[in-house]
């Protein structure tokens, strides 16, 4: 296994040499780039993961909620989808700084002091809004008869959602949710402006010392690799979860 990885690593470096990537830069910043990828992955997995959990209740509130619950849920996604993520990130990071005393009194300052937590917090709020809209649409696409049949069988609403509505909605929403994940991978570059050393942050650091445009090329390749992995995983997921919908194959 190890020798296979070594071979892959050597092959990668050779390939990079072939397209003319600077080996000097590679030696100085190569490892920091991998660190950056790791931070980016943490940002995306945490925010999209927590967002996925929060999006369900929000989507169901949009569909099932009474007048005020549904409106509150709508207002939430309206705000977070309607304003730039960059602005939201600045608002949380520098905004929290203005309320340092109050946050310290509440025992929350340790959280908002850290740029990484601020980024995860903002990204989670943002992606929750998008994911809840996707899921709301998916739930509403299902024929009304599904819920009626569940009621006729005497299932409680909770049980009907858990066993009948949610699995089907997840299947319908799968593609757009994959899209959202890919968008978040790229949007996470915004974290670099609030001093987080994600992939973009490391790239900017390397560029500021070397002034070599090539580092942006590396960053692009690494983002592409991440997106390609997601794309492949999603293809598999879709074939598996929506196999009843696939006519051919």
């Amino acid at each position: 296994m190890q020798s296979l990885l070594d071979m892959l690593g050597a092959g990668f470096l050779q390939l990079m040499g072939l397209i003319g990537l600077n080996s000097d830069l590679m030696a100085r910043y190569g490892l920091r780039f991998l660190d950056g990828v790791w931070v980016t992955l943490q940002l995306v997995v945490l925010s999209v993961g927590i967002g996925a959990l929060l999006a369900w209740p929000l989507a169901i509130a949009r569909v099932e909620g009474g007048k005020w619950t549904a409106r509150a849920a709508f207002a939430y996604s309206y705000f977070f989808r309607g304003t730039p993520l960059l602005a939201q990130t600045f608002l949380v990071y520098y905004g929290a700084g203005q309320f340092r005393e109050q946050l310290t009194a509440l025992g929350l300052w340790w959280f908002f002091r850290d740029a990484f937590y601020c980024a995860v917090f903002t990204f989670t709020l943002n992606t929750t809004a998008y994911q809840s809209e996707i899921l709301r649409g998916a739930i509403q696409t299902l024929p009304i008869g599904q819920m009626e049949a569940a009621k006729a069988l005497g299932l409680s609403k909770l049980k009907a959602y858990w066993t009948i509505i949610m699995p089907q909605a997840a299947g319908i929403g799968l593609r757009p949710l994959g899209n959202e994940l890919i968008l978040m991978i790229k949007s996470s570059a915004i974290a670099s402006v609030i001093t987080v050393y994600d992939l973009m942050g490391v790239t900017r650091l390397a560029f500021s010392r070397s002034y070599d445009m090539e580092v942006y090329l590396w960053a692009a390749v690494l983002y592409l690799v991440m997106v390609e992995v997601v794309r492949r995983v999603w293809d598999r997921l879709e074939r598996r979860l929506n196999r009843h919908l696939l006519v051919s194959r």
Partner: peptide, 18 residues
């Protein structure tokens, strides 16, 4: 080490205690 795009942002985070 935390690095900022502008010197003003650096000042802000010193005031904020980050």
């Amino acid at each position: 080490v935390k690095l900022y795009p502008k010197i003003d942002d650096t000042h802000l985070d010193l005031v904020n205690g980050r």
